[in-house]
Amino acid sequence: MHVQSEAVSRPALVVGDLTLDQRTREVRRAGVEIKLSPTEFELLRLLMHHPGRVLSKARILNRVWAYDFGGQGNVVELYISYLRRKVDARRQPMIHTVRGVGYTIRPAG
């Protein structure tokens, strides 16, 4: 997973009421801790490094899973759905699909 080297420059990422601490690997939304798997954490970290920017499935695969896009986009969709269940559960959504392009995260509301 390639995103980890960015942890040194910015220990905490914040998008709206969502905070990701790259050193402790803690994620909180509105102060409530969210438990993530290592892959979910890396995916969320990648999205939070680029708030408001749409990231393609190919880029996400390359950065989080470190392999080229070859029809494996369904793994991205699967992990996005896992993140939505945890990050957006009973709250205004932050993780959005841009149909035919990719995924983005932005503050709720």
Rank of each mutant, 00 (worst) to 15 (best):
Q92W: 06
T19R: 12
H2Y: 05
L43H: 02
R90H: 15
G109Q: 14
T19G: 02
P107Q: 13
A89C: 05
R10L: 09
H2V: 02
S37W: 08
V3W: 06
Q92C: 02
R59L: 07
D21Y: 11
M1F: 07
R84G: 04
A30F: 09
A66W: 14
R63I: 01
T97A: 10
V101Y: 12
R29S: 04
M1D: 02
Y103E: 13
A30Q: 13
Q4Y: 08
A89E: 10
R106K: 13
G31T: 04
W65E: 07
N74Y: 11
D88S: 11
P107G: 08
E77T: 13
R23C: 05
L44Q: 00
I60W: 07
G52L: 04
E33A: 04
E42T: 11
R63L: 03
Q4P: 00
L20H: 00
R84H: 06
E40D: 07
V27I: 03
N62M: 09
L46F: 07
A66I: 13
L47T: 04
R63E: 09
S81T: 09
Q72K: 14
R84T: 02
H49W: 06
V15H: 01
M48I: 02
V64Q: 07
D88G: 05
R99M: 02
L36S: 12
V8F: 03
L46D: 03
P38K: 11
S5Q: 08
R90I: 08
G31Y: 05
R25T: 04
Y82H: 15
L83T: 08
Y79D: 08
R91G: 09
Y103T: 12
P93K: 05
Q92K: 06
R90M: 09
F69K: 15
G16N: 03
H50F: 05
D68R: 14
P107S: 14
I105L: 14
R25E: 15
T97M: 07
E6D: 01
A66Y: 12
Y82C: 15
L20M: 06
R90G: 14
G52Q: 08
L36N: 07
R10S: 08
I80T: 06
A108E: 13
N74Q: 11
S5R: 10
P93I: 06
G109W: 08
Q22W: 00
K86W: 07
V87I: 15
A12W: 01
H2E: 01
I105Y: 07
F69L: 12
R90K: 14
V8L: 10
L47H: 03
K86D: 02
G100M: 15
T97W: 05
D88T: 03
A66P: 04
A108R: 10
G109N: 13
I105T: 08
I105S: 09
V87L: 11
P38I: 11
F69V: 15
R53W: 00
S81Y: 06
R63W: 03
S37G: 11
V101H: 12
S81A: 15
L13R: 04
P51I: 07
L20E: 01
K35R: 05
H49N: 03
R53F: 00
E26S: 06
L78A: 06
M1R: 11
E26C: 05
